[in-house]
Nucleic acid binder design. Structure first.
Length: 655
DNA sequence: CCTATATAGATTTTT
DNA sequence: TCTATATAGG
């Protein structure tokens, strides 16, 4: 297929663009991926080397898709296509020791959960009374301080209007601790990359020489750090290409500033702007409803998508008496579609919060309909998987005391919290990584605390752990799983603990993934595998080829498309979510969220809400979302008991 | 000081 | 429903 085949004029314009800044404002379903991949292929066909192109996405899935499609078109796989975070990790593995304030390139990447553990230990260190300060609040403060740095120097200011001295102390304690642990959080990956490029002009020149073309996907979701990073990576040639859609900005709660996309022309006044407004995905009726909904947002760039697709059928809005009835209605419709010959692969159910999957799962299970939950409790965040990974992490980073803590907690070793804290204090004092401290043959002499037989045995166990093979990954994982005793632990419990079987299965799944990874990249070590694991989202694991119904949050649905889309729980409290219902900007984001969900659909959209719902074992009365009223009444079909107007009245009756 | 058991508390979205 | 923290027993 030729690179320029089957393109509309604006699409072609974007594809053939060579040098200079360009912004592609790509509406939902307007063929953005096609344009981006073809442009890369076009660059390659015009003599640009694939490794001179750097493309940043938000998910691995988007990155992989891009790589595959470019390979199919251009016959070459561009190696520098990945998520912001994975690209930054790659930069830092190489050059983090060149920072003014250098770090070790073997750092461990901490997820949000690990971060909380660090903060909790800081709270203890700072003698904060339990229950007085929320660790999650401290984490939010740290994260937002990092994501809102002023300029390229990327100096983090922890103080703000409503912070007190304790807040600041905790933030600094966290930073100090992370350094001791040789760990970086997600924000650090971006932050330190910015700092590195900003402070080392020579290094920046090297990157500019290497990456002649820069592409940024989902530009509306970039935060301050990602924005700064993009500016720093843009060399004197200014070959920067951003794509995005302000109407699909749904991550402001994580620091994303959709202003970035609106301000692109301020940053690059000579930028070429291409607007893709023809939708190739949805029917006319779906698109018209979506347009009408998003039109209610006041702070937006005027834009009206159109399509030449069929008119289709109206969006259906169903009222249900209860969450269970709602789930049954969805599953009933799914079965009906199946009878009509629609495959489960062609349908998906979206909801606002992960917890909403439960009633659906119950009904799907009893109806024997296979389903897959995308996201939710992520595979790598499951307790037993994290425990296993903690062992692996200790092989790579001997300073990772958070992982050691997990290792201690997950199995009765005879060593507890207090002892570990004392050991860690001693190791820090000696300037030794905790694992080396324990593995030291002089350990009993060095350790000034009580050193009983149990502790000595544990130290010996740790020393042995570090001697396990690290390559190849599959074998290393197998060895660690065996040595950790985790498998044995759950096997013993299989008869008594109903959860044990599932946990064993997850451990085996982890092993399988390690083996897969080994097959794909035989030379890779445990470190590479851990990095992969730290930076994947479960959206990346959505398998569109298995015959099963996909269930996911609205956030996870972005970038996907399905012929038939169900959106459940379209109620006040969920859409907009109760936490933000009084904040006008946030409500606009919730509206965009529903817009994203609706525009995933090709053929049909089924919205539903329930009058009652069980939450925390308590029955709650619910009212339809205000967004339902914003859909064009004459182009939407209301169905179900006590349809729309009745429920609307009920809302007022309630007051 | 460690471990096992009971109870609370949590849930908005995620790289 | 599940996990992390508080409590009691050893």
């Amino acid at each position: 297929m030729d690179i320029l085949d089957n393109l509309t004029d604006p699409q072609r314009e974007a594809v053939v663009h060579m040098d200079g800044p360009m912004l592609v404002v790509a509406g939902a379903g307007s063929g953005k991926t096609r344009v981006v991949t073809r442009r890369i292929a076009h660059l390659v066909s015009r003599g640009v080397w694939p490794n001179q192109i750097l493309a940043m996405t938000f998910t691995n899935k988007a990155a992989n898709e891009m790589k595959e499609r470019v390979e199919a078109l251009a016959g070459a796989r561009p190696p520098w296509v990945g998520t912001f975070h994975s690209m930054c990790a790659r930069f830092l593995r190489r050059d983090i020791d060149k920072l003014d304030d250098p770090r070790d390139g073997s750092f461990t990447i901490y997820d949000e959960d690990d971060r909380l553990s660090v903060i909790k230990s800081c709270l203890r260190d700072c003698h904060v009374a339990p229950g007085t300060v929320s660790a999650a609040a401290v984490r939010a403060r740290i994260s937002s301080a990092k994501c809102r740095v002023q300029d390229e120097t990327a100096d983090v200011v922890f103080a703000n209007d409503d912070s007190d001295a304790l807040d600041e102390t905790l933030c600094h304690a966290y930073e100090k601790r992370m350094r001791e642990l040789n760990a970086l959080d997600f924000d650090d990956l971006l932050l330190l990359s910015v700092r590195l490029l900003a402070s080392k002009p020579a290094l920046r020149d090297v990157y500019h020489g290497r990456f002649r073309y820069l592409l940024v996907d989902e530009y509306q979701d970039t935060n301050r750090l990602q924005y700064l990073l993009m500016k720093l990576l843009t060399g004197p040639s200014r070959n920067v290409h951003a794509t995005g859609d302000p109407d699909q900005s749904i991550y402001s709660w994580r620091g994303a500033e959709y202003r970035n996309i609106l301000d692109f022309t301020t940053d690059y006044p000579d930028a070429k702007i291409v607007r893709l407004e023809q939708n190739y995905r949805s029917t006319k009726l779906i698109l018209r409803s979506a347009n009408e909904l998003i039109r209610q947002n006041t702070r937006r760039l005027e834009k009206e998508l159109f399509t030449e697709n069929m008119t289709g059928i109206p969006i259906r809005v169903a009222a249900a008496q209860s969450d269970r009835e709602e789930a049954q209605a969805v599953v009933g419709q799914v079965m009906e579609l199946r009878l009509e010959g629609v495959s489960l692969r062609e349908m998906a159910v979206f909801y606002r919060t992960n917890a909403q999957s439960r009633p659906l799962e119950d009904v799907l299970l009893s109806a024997h309909i296979p389903y897959q939950i995308v996201g939710g409790l992520r595979f790598y965040e499951r307790k037993e998987v994290k425990d296993a990974l903690a062992h692996l992490r200790l092989l790579v980073n001997p300073r990772d005391a958070v992982s050691l803590q997990r290792v201690v907690d997950c199995r009765a070793t005879g060593v507890g919290r207090k002892t570990l804290a004392a050991l860690l204090g001693q190791a820090t004092e000696d300037g030794l990584p905790i694992m080396e401290f324990l593995a030291d043959t002089d350990f009993p002499k060095r350790y000034r605390g009580r050193c009983g037989a149990k502790l000595a045995a544990f130290a010996a166990w740790c020393a042995e752990l570090r001697r396990l093979p690290r390559t190849p990954v599959g074998n290393a994982t197998a060895a660690v799983l065996e040595y950790s005793g985790l498998i044995e632990h759950y096997k013993e419990r299989e008869d008594t603990d109903p959860l044990a079987e599932g946990r064993l299965a997850n451990l085996n799944a982890l092993l399988e993934r390690a083996n897969e990874y080994q097959e794909q990249t035989p030379e890779a070590g445990v470190d590479a595998f851990l990095e992969e694991v730290a930076l994947v989202a479960d959206v990346d694991y959505h398998d569109p080829d298995t015959e099963s119904l996909a269930l996911m949050t609205l956030h996870a649905s972005k970038g996907l498309e399905f012929p038939y889309v169900f959106i459940v729980g379209v109620e006040e409290g969920y859409l907009p979510h109760e936490n933000v219902a009084w904040n006008e900007d946030a409500v606009e984001e919730e509206r965009r969220l529903l817009y994203v969900g609706i525009t995933r659909a090709k053929q049909a959209v089924y919205l539903s809400y329930a009058a009652t719902r069980y939450l925390w074992n308590e029955m709650q009365y619910r009212t339809p979302s205000r967004f339902v009223d914003e859909l064009p009444t004459d182009e939407v079909e209301f169905v179900g008991r006590g349809a729309h107007r009745a429920s609307k009245r009920r809302r007022w009756d309630a007051w």
